[in-house]
Design a protein around this nucleic acid. Structure first.
Lengths: 190, 190, 190, 190
DNA sequence: CATGAATGAGCTTTCATTCAT
DNA sequence: GATGAATGAAAGCTCATTCAT
């Protein structure tokens, strides 16, 4: 149980953790497998025992967030398209983001790169679908902006407010409140 | 004067244009100087005649937007900190973004990479400064979020609404309207 | 075990050998890693598996001679500063040079380059220290020249007499004799 | 006559001076024409107005010393092969070296490189010829070493004693004295 | 007497990947 | 569950050189 001993069994997980950290910090392309291996004190070849390619590492890391979003979309589509549903969607999205914050940051900061990967469009599409669920199909352009802003405000909460002082949970709630306001406002003008 | 003839005198400009396009599309790191050179039908060495390094190309491309933001900040700081000033700040920011849209997209999509470059903090700092100008120093957390959202909504307008149908200028105005609403709302609760 | 089979385990050594040979023959700067790799029938990347940089190769090659000289200096400093000690110093230096002749030739013929490398001063300094050990601190200028000449005559023996006919060991002894004469002469006038 | 004005007419000479300085200091290969041009505040293309190639610059710089040596050899061959002639040869050689010291240093420190250039063997040959003139054809090996050492001691004077304190002219004379001693000694055992 | 613009060849270095052990 | 040794491809960059102006 000594933490200085070579852990065993968890190497796969440790690779994912270190990779995500480095990919976010220094960029996916700028991060070489050599760096990841060195930081873990294993050889590059060891990485290849656990993952088929570099891209595979990133896929595995991003997979959970993908599933989360899919579930959210599925849920949203199954509900009646009321304001209350939409509010609940935002609430759930907020929680999902909070949970998967590091992965989300990575995606945000490596958009150009990620687009070329096979995950590619997948995430963008999901965000569009999600955003569509918040909006009436016949919404005016301004309201379109409002619902979109509602969603993206939450990303901003993750990024721009990251180095603002204050309890993360407080910040999350403040962000959610503003997002809900935007959503409500978009609905009022119906 | 035929456009298929080797243009002269404009090579530097053409490098910047093609580079920005490729950097945005495929990512800064994934875009090699070979690709840029090939697309311009010159040799790599020609790029190095006009720019000292790859990073230099990106710096030169991003420079104008930097100046624009600095001017905006300077202006904002010279004005009385009234609601009207802040609204005008948003209006001007909106126009600046519209003008420099391609550069801005590049920065947005290559954040991780850009952070490592020497432009690095420069842009983030400017956005923070700008955002500070929109906010009362004693603003509640929710209002902090609102002013921040006001600014970032405009980025979203650039990105997420890019492939929504409609006249760009209409979209810009709709986005600006929502941003102004957020700003006003943040002020009401003073 | 056939010598035309790809040897294994000795690649590092083979790189050093070929590198030293080419560096001496055609100059460090003029010798590209491609040439070294080709002559070894491996890829350039293989060189980088064994050495971190081109400079590293040269450092590793030169290291042994450095140690030899350090030991010699240490020994010299531990002895009484008598004529006999100095003579023995020359004798030992002569042997060291004979052993490390190829490395020494390389250093001699690439002085300007080596100076810029990180070995830089190291060797020059050692020769100066060694030369100081041969000399009385209050020696007249002429005697200063004589002891210096004693040392450098040995280098000449290595270089200028290289293509003079005769048994190498005979030549070494003749050179040593002249050097010892110079040393003795320098002492007489004390 | 103001020294800050762009001198004219002497550009060729200035190129040679700067080139020799840089070639000696940082090595011929490591010194690029760009560096030379920059230091002279002209363009690379300007160098090509004055010299056909990089090698040409070095040839032009080294030419004078070559002629000097040729004259010395010619003179030596025309004299009777007496000890006095040989002594005078050394004296004249000493002066030639003192005059052409910078060029000589360059050759000394860039041997490997120079060998590949078209000057190549020329200088080595001349030194061998010169050295032969100092020696009786039937000299014993030890005396062969002594005459060779006599010559090379003078190079050492240029190099190793360069950063020893003292008047250069005094040093030159001390070196010459030792060299003459070596020569005389070589003759005595005839 | 010189420059501005460009090229072709080559350099050192790094990377993702492979595979026998 | 991993390593040691290597590869093929490509990257960013520099250099000597050319030539129209």
């Amino acid at each position: 149980m000594a933490s200085t001993q070579p852990r065993r069994g968890d190497t796969r997980q440790r690779i994912q953790d270190v990779a995500l950290e480095l990919f976010t910090e220094r960029g996916y392309d700028k991060t070489s497998l050599r760096e990841i291996a060195e930081r873990l004190e294993v050889t590059k070849a060891a990485l290849y025992y656990h993952f088929k390619t570099k891209e595979d590492i990133v896929l595995s890391v991003v997979e959970d967030l993908g599933r989360l979003l899919d579930e959210l979309i599925e849920w949203g589509q199954a509900q009646p398209h009321t304001l209350e549903t939409k509010k609940e969607l935002l609430r759930r999205y907020s929680e999902a983001l909070a949970d998967a914050a590091p992965v989300f940051r990575f995606l945000q900061e490596n958009q150009a790169t990620v687009r070329e990967l096979s995950i590619g469009g997948a995430f963008k599409e999901r965000l569009v679908t999600l955003s569509d669920l918040l909006r009436a199909p016949d919404a005016a352009l301004t309201d379109h902006v409002r619902t979109t802003a509602a969603m993206f405000t939450m990303h901003v909460g993750l990024m721009a407010l990251h180095d603002v002082e204050g309890d993360p949970e407080d910040k999350r709630k403040a962000v959610l409140e503003v997002a809900l306001d935007l959503l409500t406002e978009a609905h009022r003008s119906r």
